[in-house]
Nucleic acid binder design. Structure first.
Lengths: 240, 240
DNA sequence: TTGAGCGTAGTGGTCAGACCACTGAGCTGA
DNA sequence: TCAGCTCAGTGGTCTGACCACTACGCTCAA
């Protein structure tokens, strides 16, 4: 059975470019379970013959699915389906954050505020002593240095550890994209230059307190306020 | 200045494949503002010469950025940078929903519950009479037919209209991906077969009431319950 | 018997050049 | 004036060749 409903009497409607069709066909193979996660695909040359297209076009299709995190090409070995986990598929989410500007950055921060506050609330309810120790490690490291690069790095790890404790890998992957290194660097730079370090520390401490107390509502409020501060600052920047 | 820090004394570290490098370079050109949204790029042949690679490799790079929604190729005309709006960049988000299975679907629904409940709450506060009329149109259409396809279609439009009224295009684009047609079709099918139509109608009515009353908290609760029902049903399905 | 080292077949990565399909701007002529 | 045509330029596709790398099996000395 073909993937398209017979909307025409034509046997092969030839819609779109051959590469686009190849992308859809491989996606369909995976979606229908004909290719399991981790499975190895036929060779580029063989796939091209199977779908009746040239190797160049097939390579473009494979490249497309590679950047989407669906396939993984290993030089000299073969092409494999990824595990199709959240991390694989949502890696490209960072591109959005990297290329967004102006009002769109505010919208992204708003999404991050919503997700991160909920994730922090979940974490407060579920976090284990081991996970809490990890969070505290980065909190302490953040206070122990003056190097902005290192602070940013531990800041990221601090939030990442909290989100991981929330137990939803998909949400974690999305937030990872929303907090991607370049995105944070661009916004944080200006924000911290205005002497927001002290405020950031206070907010981090509040989040930490809520986690220790296993108080979801306090955690939600603290996380929302934390991201909201940056969001509001960015709004102000855009107005002027 | 090159994009990479000089971690080696080498002038050109040659990291990764040439195609990957080309992707990064084009992305950098856009990120640095050398290519504005809507701008037209040099021809494939010219770009290939500029970056010192073959046209094949350049085409793969362009294809990759095309599927990511960053570039748009027009046959016979040229290659253009998209408007880099949320819709352009987050179109690929639907791929995640299409290829996710099992526990990951539950995680996706959890993310959707969080975002959609907040979006519905925002909509309740901001919705205009015109937007409300649009919502009601789909609500009525949903009740006026028995065709599952049409019901699903209006169900999607109902939520889309609400989310649009929330005023955050980025969030709307993400939710669009999370509610993509194939995703909904896969989950909804089983859900509705169990006679959930009546419940769905009640929940939609509750959401509508909250919107009319401009009551954000009621709207949030109603939307969360609505998605949560499906989420819980899916959890049950996975257990057995 | 064992294991380090060496081939080698097969795979993805890259390149070059050719032709096709489509677009759009300029020319032509009624 | 403008409908229609022409054609140079652009993306889309194909072919075939070679390079870089991997994995596996073979060899041969310990």
């Amino acid at each position: 059975m073909d993937e398209a409903l017979p909307r025409q009497t034509e046997p092969a409607p030839q819609k779109g470019t051959v590469t686009q069709r190849a992308i859809e066909q491989i996606k369909a193979m995976i979606g229908e379970g004909r290719l399991e996660p981790g499975a190895r695909l036929p060779t580029e040359r063989e796939l091209a013959v199977q779908l009746g297209i040239s190797r160049s076009s097939m390579r473009e299709a494979i490249r497309a699915l590679t950047v989407l995190g669906v396939l993984e090409a290993r030089h000299g070995s073969g092409i494999y389906v990824t595990q199709l986990e959240a991390g694989d598929l949502l890696e490209t989410f960072g591109v959005v954050a990297d290329l967004s500007r102006g009002p769109q950055l505010v919208e992204l921060l708003e999404v991050r505020r919503i997700l991160e506050s909920t994730a922090t609330a979940l974490a407060a309810a579920r976090i284990t002593p081991g996970e809490l120790a990890e969070v505290e490690k980065h909190l302490a490291a953040m206070h122990a240095t003056d190097d902005p690069e290192e602070i940013l790095s531990h800041d990221l790890a601090f939030h990442r550890a909290i989100v991981a404790a929330a137990g939803n890998d998909t949400m974690a992957a999305i937030l990872e994209g929303l907090s991607s290194r370049t995105f944070r660097a661009r916004v944080w730079r200006g924000y911290q230059e205005e002497g927001a370090f002290a405020r950031t520390r206070r907010e981090h401490a509040a989040i930490h307190r809520a986690l220790v107390a296993h108080d979801p509502e306090a955690a939600r409020a603290a996380a929302a306020a934390h991201v909201g501060e940056v969001e509001e600052w960015l709004r102000t920047q855009l107005r002027q």
